[in-house]
Simulated scan of single mutants.
Amino acid sequence: MQAAVKKIGIGIGSDAEKVIDSACRVSVPCDIICYSRPDTGKVPPGCSRVRIAESETPEAMLVSDLMTGAIDAAVRGTLPANTTLQALKEAAGVDHLERIALLETAGGKKFLFAPVGIDEGWTVADKLALVRKGRLIARRFGLPDKVGVLSGGRFGDVGRHARVDRSMADAELVARLGDAVHYEILIEDAIESCGLIIAPDGISGNLVFRTLTFLGAGHGHGAPVVNIDKIFVDTSRASPDYANALLLAAALLE
């Protein structure tokens, strides 16, 4: 018996044309359902594997369909972050979300990076969880499973500020317990051989992500949520398109 075709949902909150164009253009062995408010956008003729699902609350419908198995994976697309991620947390029964972003430098170097949310990765335990889960994703995508841990300074900076000292001590502990390497503040060295890089905290991680993708000519391919048992790829509404996020979701389905 032929296996059922997998379904990926993607949200439309704004820029409907950008989302629908990404869905029609991407080559994945899946049907794609675009979740939007009524009369937000239309699928052009000839794009038979893409359809629209309309709702007054598309974020709730997307999350509900993911949780019930009506779709096999979800991409946030251009839906608003606060309401969509809150709906996901409530449906999944978690009090926070852990995301690991797949990034690409302007020179074409791909790597996983976390934490990327300002409320993520603040404790040693949080970082160790990201190391463990991120290493598995790195292997799945053919990236090096070497992990680099960053801190707020170099060893010679010890004593200059208590917060820097604490970040370095935490990074040393994460590296030791997580079989990783502490690269101090030298992200430019970590990128040379690491498939996963761990930022000192959620604020610095978010700043690195935004600097690379919005100022540094790099790319963000989406950030899978790794502490729920469903495939959900978070995205930025400022992304130029969502083809790579859909490809990421499809790869996780495999």
Results as ranks from 00 to 15, higher is better:
M1T: 12
M1Y: 13
M1R: 14
K7R: 15
I8K: 02
G9R: 07
G13Q: 09
G13V: 08
S14T: 15
S14E: 15
E17L: 12
V26T: 06
S27A: 14
S27P: 08
V28I: 12
V28H: 05
V28A: 06
I32A: 00
I33K: 02
Y35N: 00
S36Q: 15
D39N: 11
G41P: 02
G41Q: 03
G41V: 02
C47D: 12
S48M: 04
S48C: 09
S55K: 10
S55I: 10
E56P: 07
P58N: 02
A60Y: 12
S64R: 13
T68A: 06
D72A: 15
G77W: 04
T78W: 04
T78K: 02
P80N: 04
A81K: 05
T84G: 07
K89N: 09
A91H: 05
A92G: 08
A92K: 06
V94P: 07
D95N: 11
H96R: 14
E98P: 01
R99C: 15
R99K: 13
R99H: 15
E104Q: 15
G108C: 14
K109Y: 10
F113A: 03
P115A: 08
G117N: 11
D119I: 01
D119F: 06
E120I: 07
V124A: 11
A125G: 06
L128Y: 04
R135V: 09
A138R: 06
R139Q: 13
R140G: 04
P144L: 08
P144N: 06
G148V: 15
V149K: 00
L150V: 07
G152M: 11
G153D: 09
F155M: 09
G156Y: 14
G156T: 08
G156H: 10
D157H: 08
D157S: 11
R160F: 09
S167E: 05
M168N: 12
D170W: 07
D170C: 03
V174M: 03
A175E: 03
G178H: 03
A180Y: 02
V181R: 00
I185M: 14
I187S: 11
E188C: 08
E188W: 12
E188S: 09
E192P: 06
S193P: 03
S193C: 08
I198W: 07
I203N: 10
I203Q: 10
G205W: 09
N206V: 07
L207M: 10
V208A: 11
L212A: 15
T213F: 00
T213P: 02
T213V: 01
L215R: 15
A217D: 13
G218T: 12
H221Y: 14
V226Q: 02
I228M: 05
D229W: 03
D229L: 06
K230E: 08
K230M: 06
I231G: 09
A238R: 07
S239P: 01
D241N: 15
D241I: 13
D241G: 12
Y242Q: 00
A245P: 00
L248I: 10
A249N: 14
E254P: 05
E254F: 12
